[in-house]
Computed example of a mutant assay.
Amino acid sequence: MPDQRPARQRLLLDVDTGIDDAVALMYLLATPGVSVEAITCTAGNVGARQVALNNLALLELCGHAGVEVAIGSEVPLEIPLVTTEETHGDQGIGYAELPPPRGHISGRHAVDVWLEAVRCHPGQITGVVTGPLTNLALAIRAEPQLPMLLKGLVIMGGAFNYPGNTTPVAEWNTHVDPHAAKEVYAAYEGLPEEKLPIVCALETTERIECTPAHVDAVARAAGAGPEMLEPDEPAGTRSRSGNAVVACLSDALRFYMEFHRLYDQGYVAHLHDLFAVMVAAGEASFEERLVTVDVETASSLTIGQTVADLAGMWRRAPNARIVTGNDPEAVFDLMVRRLAHLARMHG
């Protein structure tokens, strides 16, 4: 019999999948009480069409074929697109190789998906954006009431009093489309606190450091045996696991760990987006601070920088709830439990 319990959280995802987006999606698909209403795709880690194909393939791997996957804008609002295959691999999911999806990309534009969802279900849908904010900015242009029609919004992006990961001051998602980010924050200024976006920025998401031990723990808990990602193995080594979910996770994260090591960050993978979707699902504890955020778009030196007025100097109404603290150990305990269950069911 199908589960008749109402979903605790109805989520509309906008992603640029992406290794950490992929892990985040796998976690959500394994989480009871969460309904992924649709997935909209933007260009960022890789091009938007590759993002869509990655999402369709992951949905099928995880036994959730049928979720609508739609493409939105394939370029930022005002500046040329940059992608980051060196970070996420040519296909966007590292060394992981999934069968070509049987499902098809939706004929609808991402903006139409967002507008229909919030208009048909006002106050019931939580938006989650783990890529550039292009599609959300376009949706707000088309429906200025969208922030009030959403139940809530979670954004992975930005860096506040913390170094950027793309330029000295800019985080990747915001750097790809700073004009979109600026528009989104402006649209939220002065709205009720419960409607303001929860912003998961680098100072907390870089604390979510996935290690080989976490991947091994997923495999062992799934009954798939050990899955060792050894730092001294040749680059590009592939998983030998007979479990498809474990192999996908391992091969994707190995690529990400090799990238981080290349930049002297250790043999780890920062799972930015996993933390953001856990916040959206209501499963991650965190501390937050109410602030006004703006985004630099004019300076060639600091374009993409997110600036938070912590002292109220601008005398403007708040437009964001910035996450100021989290619990990485609890995040990984939950990740292991959820992904191990997924691997047992669909591996």
Rank of each mutant, 00 (worst) to 15 (best):
L310D: 14
F255N: 11
A284D: 08
Y267K: 13
R315V: 06
T292S: 02
A244Y: 08
E296F: 13
G312C: 00
D327F: 09
E283A: 11
D273G: 09
S285M: 08
R289T: 04
N319I: 06
D264A: 08
E258A: 06
E258G: 04
T306I: 06
R315S: 15
F286I: 09
I322T: 14
A298T: 14
V307R: 15
F286W: 13
T297F: 15
V323F: 10
A244K: 11
V293L: 14
N319W: 03
S250M: 10
R289V: 03
I322N: 12
H270Y: 10
A280S: 14
M257C: 12
G282P: 01
T302A: 14
Y263C: 00
A311I: 01
E258Q: 14
R289L: 01
A320I: 03
V245S: 10
V277A: 01
A280L: 10
E288P: 01
L290A: 07
R261E: 12
I303C: 10
L310W: 15
A281G: 14
R316L: 08
R261W: 04
V293T: 08
H260N: 15
F286M: 08
F255V: 12
V295S: 01
E288I: 02
V246Q: 02
D309M: 12
L290I: 11
L253H: 04
W314Q: 09
I322W: 13
L310R: 12
V277S: 03
R254K: 05
H272Q: 08
E296A: 14
V268H: 11
R315I: 04
L271M: 15
C248R: 02
A317R: 11
Q265N: 15
V323Q: 13
T306H: 05
R261M: 03
L253A: 04
H272Y: 08
